[in-house]
Design a protein around this nucleic acid. Structure first.
Lengths: 218, 218
DNA sequence: CTGAGGTATATGGTATACCAGATACCTCAT
DNA sequence: ATGAGGTATCTGGTATACCATATACCTCAG
């Protein structure tokens, strides 16, 4: 018998629409306050309203848009409060990740973390890739926590960070600072030193907070 | 001009259906593995499939059910892993709540916490009400954090706790222990003592974990 | 000119029709 | 008896039709 590869079921429309719109929001192609009309999207994408409604609902549950019955759905604003909230949450979650991580991390996993760190270092000139790898770094650590709810939460947090933080890296020296801080985390992990790891991640988040706030004021 | 009261817009079907099904799951009227067929629900509830689909999607995003394309959607199981995951998350979130809470809590708010504590104490014989007030206690603390994302997360966590923990309270003396632990938290809050508050909440969660695990084994 | 009230036309909410994949069962050649 | 293959009938996915509300604009009496 031939070696057939498993046929994967086709991706549902609603999932594709969800990704598409979310990316458009994160990349600031759709701005806060702008409407998302179902019929409009339906025509643009060449599909019916049903999958679009479902994609929009998911976006609303994740806080990207706000739907007002019989008026429309609109992209939410980013306030300074949002930044504070997300970063407070991130601090707690990544602290937890460190606690769960340290007792179980293997040498192979540490190597992979280091590898991500190196590839990020190599891309320090390319802002977009740098940010993509930054996300990988934090999400991989979340995966190593072994807690699927934490992984999911961290993904949402990463997306929101990308949304309002994409310009924070343009600040002079922020990329280098990020790399130094990631290195601190990596070093602490290698030693399996929980206190140092938590301190390193907290410092990193605090500096990120400052950078993001600065970028919002401009 | 007469004093008219504002007309509130009617609740959407999908929201009602969502509540209904979620409660049925939490109260173990629908058991893990059981199917939720759209047409079936549609007939039972006397409405069309559209709002039902949207309610089911929300339930899926929150992890209550799993939808398999063209097969059906089924109530998820509760594994010990789920208990661990939720309680790990809860520990991190409620720890954060304490950190955010202590510097800002007012005397009036403290009084309200105490009031909730008293009313829970008064209902120690009525399991159902006791659990409802327990939820109020923790959710109110979350509100005082001033972080809306934390509030929402805590609500989801509370629901899941209710789902797999409803029998934990049947254990001998668990209600009294819960009350003592809540009192510890309250005392620490009154002193604005962060370290003591965190220790108290961590102890409470750890004991809850043990009780829930025991109740799952029976 | 002004503004109350009608009206056309947006919107999302809901109901319904139809499609394709999944499944169980039946049929029938072996 | 058995099992391959057809078939009826489940399922969710998608498209479409229709409804009520919300809104902007128009009309016309004053």
């Amino acid at each position: 018998m031939m070696a057939f590869s498993k046929i994967e079921q086709p991706q549902l429309f609603k999932q594709q629409v969800y990704e598409e719109i979310k990316n458009a929001i994160i990349n600031h192609q759709i701005l806060p306050g702008e409407p998302l009309y179902e019929r409009n999207l339906s025509e643009s994408l060449g599909i019916s309203r049903t999958p679009i409604r479902e994609a929009i609902q998911q976006l609303e549950l994740e806080g990207w848009v706000k739907s007002i019955p019989r008026k429309g759905t609109f992209v939410n604003n980013i306030s300074e409060k949002d930044v504070e909230e997300v970063l407070q949450l991130r601090r707690a979650i990544e602290g937890l990740v460190m606690e769960l991580l340290i007792p179980t991390i293997t040498d192979e996993q540490l190597e992979k973390v280091e590898q991500i760190y190196f590839s990020q270092s190599a891309q320090r000139e390319d802002n977009k890739r740098f940010i993509a790898i930054d996300k990988d770094f934090h999400n991989y650590l979340a995966e190593l926590s072994g807690n699927s709810r934490v992984v999911q939460l961290m993904q949402t947090i990463s997306d929101q960070m990308r949304w309002f933080g994409i310009r924070a890296l343009n600040q002079l020296g922020r990329a280098e600072q990020t790399l130094r801080e990631h290195e601190m985390i990596l070093t602490a992990l290698k030693k399996r030193d929980l206190a140092a790891a938590k301190e390193a991640i907290f410092t990193h988040i605090e500096h990120t907070r400052i950078a993001v706030r600065k970028s919002l004021q401009t």
